[in-house]
Nucleic acid binder design. Sequence first.
DNA 1: GGGCTGACTGAACATCTGTACAGTCTTGGC
DNA 2: GCCAAGACTGTACAGATGTTCAGTCAGCCC
Lengths: 195, 195
Amino acid sequence: MRSAKGRDSIVAAALRVFGAGGIDSTSLREVAKAAGVSPALVVHHFGSKEGLVAAADEAALAGFATAYGAEQTARGPDLLRLRAEQTARVMQERPEACAYLGRALVEGTPGSARLFRLMIEGGRAEIEALAERGALREDTDRLWATLQHFFLIWAPLSFMPLLEQEALDGPLLERETLDRWVNANLDLLKEGLYR
Amino acid sequence: MRSAKGRDSIVAAALRVFGAGGIDSTSLREVAKAAGVSPALVVHHFGSKEGLVAAADEAALAGFATAYGAEQTARGPDLLRLRAEQTARVMQERPEACAYLGRALVEGTPGSARLFRLMIEGGRAEIEALAERGALREDTDRLWATLQHFFLIWAPLSFMPLLEQEALDGPLLERETLDRWVNANLDLLKEGLYR
DNA sequence: GGGCTGACTGAACATCTGTACAGTCTTGGC
DNA sequence: GCCAAGACTGTACAGATGTTCAGTCAGCCC
């Protein structure tokens, strides 16, 4: 079989290296070196750096798309907790994809725009469902509520280096830290900060 | 007087161009062209690109630092609203600085790390003060509450291009949108989303 | 075995990058 | 009026960047 081992290892290296150093400011040569491969092979497989980024987008999105696209049967605040834990699980399993997506979202790759749309649409649908069930306060700004969900979940990924260096004492995607994060989000969304 | 007009216009151009296209991936030459000046002059004034970034950090931070460092006399939730409106005012007055800071925070410039520390320390102090006054729920995770504050306020700046293109129909820092944003944040922090 | 397809490489390319340097033009102090 | 300081420019350079190209090698089909 014509091994696609090269191709796969390039994508994996791209997620790792782009996630760590940014997409625009990391060169094809760095990716190639990280994959243990010649720069020309990257072009051979993906046509251009743009093509490589598209492939990395695709690879990073896999898993999250299904976690967000799937219909849920749970209801009310339980739905919220279920979604959160689902996302957290995917995040913990694929930290390189998370680091990459965090970068991609702020650098505006085509794939990240797709993720954003997916999440906003999903989030909005969820909010509307909650509203219909009367679980939402009536004066809620639904667009901004959706965006707030998005920020609370995804911004930490984009700020990961800053966060880990200045505020946390370990990796963000470690089990314990991840749990604190998820619980803090659920707390805030359900009851607010003040009493 | 030996005009420092060149210097100032370079910093202004840097905020604009770096804010729009990212810092790492925007060249000195682009900044120079935007300032109507030769690339060599940029080096003359700032020594290197690193020096220019430091100057841009400084320029962007001015205003926010005072808004955040100042002691406040208001109490309780009013303090929260006051701070929010103060921040919003500065943001509205200096949109280029905001776009720049949004980028700087995710690219990890030294100045942005300073801003982050400033905000985290300020935020934590505020949370502690609220806790002492009994305004905080006791089981609140104070570290993550501080971080949530930070994300709700600053993440939109880093996601600005995505946000404006995919979710909003105008500039984020326009009066009306800014007000909705601030109100949504205060709502969420005070009472949560659900009832 | 012969030939084809596709993974893979090394060397080369034009261009862009940050920066250095030598020199000119402007201006304020004497 | 002169001079020194510093704002400012054009040119040049070494290295990095994305991409091209000719060519080698391994495995599959006939």
